[in-house]
């Protein structure tokens, strides 16, 4: 598989820190039958960005935009992680040695183990390093 096949489109939603915004996002996605694999919230003063990996990013984008949300796509990669102590360190260390900077990451636990989602400054290098170390990257097709 080409490196491109591992680039996954995350949806990023601008949200004010006020009650009900996350619920509104979740409710909109539910109505569109969009399944959320993973999400995280990053906060600054007064506002935040809700990041989510979903099974139908375009549909999610359309719906949230039509509800007035400000939505953007962000490229991330997803790595299968050993579900035991040291699993995170292994991947972080691997990327560090390859000179790849992790801008942020979040994780989820699926039926077949943990998955680490990474936003990095140089995705091609990250993909090469991870594959070179024999770690399993999840293809974007797995999220559609």
């Amino acid at each position: 598989m080409a490196a491109d096949d591992y680039i996954i489109r995350q949806i990023s939603v601008f949200s004010e820190n006020r009650p009900g915004r996350l619920a509104a996002i979740a409710h909109a996605l539910e109505e569109e039958c969009v399944n959320i694999f993973a999400f995280s919230i990053a906060e600054a003063s007064g506002f935040g960005v809700v990041r989510a990996l979903v099974d139908h990013p375009d549909r999610a984008y359309e719906r949230l935009t039509s509800e007035g949300f400000n939505v953007a796509f962000t490229d991330v990669i997803a790595v299968r992680m050993r579900d035991e102590p040291g699993g995170l360190f292994e991947i972080a260390n691997l990327l560090g040695e390859a000179g790849v900077n992790i801008e942020y990451s979040y994780a989820y636990s699926g039926l077949d183990g943990g998955v680490l989602i990474l936003r990095v400054d140089r995705p091609e290098d990250a993909i090469a390093a991870i594959r070179g170390a024999g770690k399993e990257l999840i293809a974007s097709s797995a999220f559609a």
Binding site: Q10, S12, F14, A42, E43, A44, F47, G48, V49, N70, V71, A72, F73, T74, E103
Partner: peptide, 9 residues
């Protein structure tokens, strides 16, 4: 909106 919190900050 780039999708990045850091850009907003």
């Amino acid at each position: 909106f780039s999708g990045e919190l850091a850009d907003l900050a």
